[in-house]
Amino acid sequence: MNDSQTATKFDIPLVVNGKTITVHAFPMERLLDVLRVQIGLTGTKEGCGEGECGSCSVLVDGALVNSCLIPVLQASGTHITTIEGLATDKRLHALQQAFLDFGGAQCGICTPGMILAAVHLLSKNPQPTGADIREGLSGNLCRCTGYLQIFEAVADAAVRCRQ
């Protein structure tokens, strides 16, 4: 994504999972690589590197993005949420708990991105219908589950979040 022998690195401020940090990176470096390699947040996964599978999904200022398609400069000054930012004080987020209870995670590689897509869905639509859930998660591919147990998990978490 960059030619490290000719380009120049910049200081880029980010707010990641509530913490303000500055990374020193090439402007066109993928946000995915900066999160994983520089910041060490390896919960964000690479599945295809071209924005098809959604495994690298993170929230940037509340919007769901594929971090493999975002140059880090574009994220400068934004608030980023990764999977590591969801659980608080060892207490799982309602969606994480529901994924555990309903079998929403099998091999686990799509799970971080899938859960963030679900967080995004519930933030926009706290009472999603079955069709809303299908649509809301359709940018995130899962090869293990066949999705149905993920739908159940999201529907259950939606109820838990409203309570």
């Binding site: 994983r36 947040l41 390896t42 919960g43 964000t44 996964k45 690479e46 990764t82 999977i83 590591e84 969801l86 659980a87 799982l92 994480q96 708990q97 994924f99 555990l100 209870d101 079998g103 929403g104 995670a105 091999c107 686990g108 590689i109 799970t111 971080p112 859960i115």
Partner: peptide, 18 residues
């Protein structure tokens, strides 16, 4: 509960590229 499930839903699981 899935034995390694908690690590999978929190992003703590270590895959080879991690």
């Amino acid at each position: 509960p899935r034995l390694e499930g908690r690590d999978k839903v929190t992003g703590a699981s270590r895959y080879v590229d991690d």
